[in-house]
């Protein structure tokens, strides 16, 4: 870990100003940042500690919906009564992630920004375009069990490891961002992450100094919500694949369906186009298969992760089956 300046801003304007300079990083829960700093995968020269900023509240919105402060911990969010009642998918996703200890520290904003678990990103002696732009991708041709089958590029095949973000993606969440200029802007989560392309080191639309202040969930819809996570051990492991589903069935046909997938792409993966196939249709195995095939149309394995293609396919079909049955 490199030495750094440690500052604790008293308010938002000071926070974004202090974080604007090159080499600055916000620290909230620190569960991923300090992990990476110890290995010098990340080496900020200034840590801006935002833990004492007033961002730890969950507030119901007058128009319906919930605004989740960026510093709300994963534990608090999972246990929040409104979340459990209206967005059970989110509680389930959070509870499927990490451990009790980590959830107590990890925050909503930090969880969105957690870095990939790619072995080579974590190894400073190996080339990695995400860590060192232009150095190459060691994962391609290497050990790829963890890696992406969708949305990857020739420059990076890393996956996004969050469970929470997958649920939020299916819930049409928006990310609230405070800029250095003091402007608050909102970005749909579906536009928040960038695909790697040839710039895998740029992972989100955030500009230097930008601070996530909260996540907004739209008013709950009457639908069945399911989060299914598949992993190598029963707990405390990252997803090999996961599926988040928000599905409503009315009078025997699917009214609305939103599905997002984790462990398979550089960002929580959602295919709006494929979702159109479901709306207005009667639930059937055949329909689910067609949907899964559409989602996986562009999927490409790297050898070690080829299994994720059939695994995701089966998981999608089973999740849709369960969701539509429960929603009847």
């Amino acid at each position: 870990m490199r030495p750094f300046d440690y500052v604790r801003p008293s308010g938002l304007p000071e926070a974004t100003r202090q974080a604007r300079a090159e080499g600055s990083a916000f620290i909230a829960g620190g569960t991923n940042l300090l992990d990476l700093m110890k290995l010098e995968v990340m080496a900020p020269t200034r840590l801006v500690d935002i833990n004492r900023l007033d961002l730890a509240e969950c507030a119901s919105l007058p128009i319906g919906g919930l605004r989740i402060g960026a510093l709300v911990t994963n534990s608090d969010l999972a246990a929040d009564e409104r979340v459990r009642r209206d967005y059970p998918l989110l509680s389930r996703a959070l509870l499927a992630g990490a451990s009790g200890q980590l959830r107590n520290k990890a925050t909503t904003g930090g969880n969105l920004l957690q870095r990939t678990r790619c072995y080579y990103f974590y190894d400073t002696s190996a080339p990695c375009n995400k860590r060192e732009p232009g150095s190459g991708c060691s994962a391609i041709g290497g050990a790829t069990r963890l890696h992406a089958i969708l949305g990857a590029s020739d420059h990076c095949i890393a996956t996004h490891p969050s469970d929470m973000a997958v649920a939020m993606q299916a819930l049409d969440a928006g990310v609230e961002i405070e800029t250095v200029e003091g402007i608050t802007r909102s970005v749909p989560l579906s536009d928040f992450y960038r695909l790697p392309g040839d710039t895998p080191h740029i992972e989100t639309v955030l500009e230097p100094g930008d601070l996530i202040t909260g996540v907004v969930l739209p008013a709950p819809v009457k639908a069945t919500q399911i989060y299914r996570k598949v992993r190598d051990r029963a707990s405390y492991a990252f997803a090999l694949v996961s599926a988040a589903a928000v599905v409503a069935v009315e009078n025997g046909t699917i009214g609305s369906a939103a599905l997002a997938f984790g462990g398979v792409a550089p960002r929580p993966w959602r295919n709006h186009h494929a979702e159109l196939m479901l709306a207005g249709e009667r639930p059937s195995e055949k329909l689910f298969e067609a949907f899964a095939d559409e989602v996986l149309g562009e999927a490409r394995g790297q050898g070690g992760n080829d299994f994720k293609i059939p695994l995701l396919r089966r998981t999608i079909i089973a999740t849709l089956k369960q969701a539509t049955e429960e929603s009847q």
Partner: peptide, 27 residues
């Protein structure tokens, strides 16, 4: 493990369990 992957460092902060290896003392 020093990386929040084993839990041997668990302590309570304000009543809650955390991995003390993944937080700075100065915070």
């Amino acid at each position: 493990c020093d990386h929040g992957q084993c839990g041997a460092c668990t302590v309570l902060v304000n009543g809650r369990r955390i991995n003390s290896c993944l937080t700075l003392a100065c915070m």
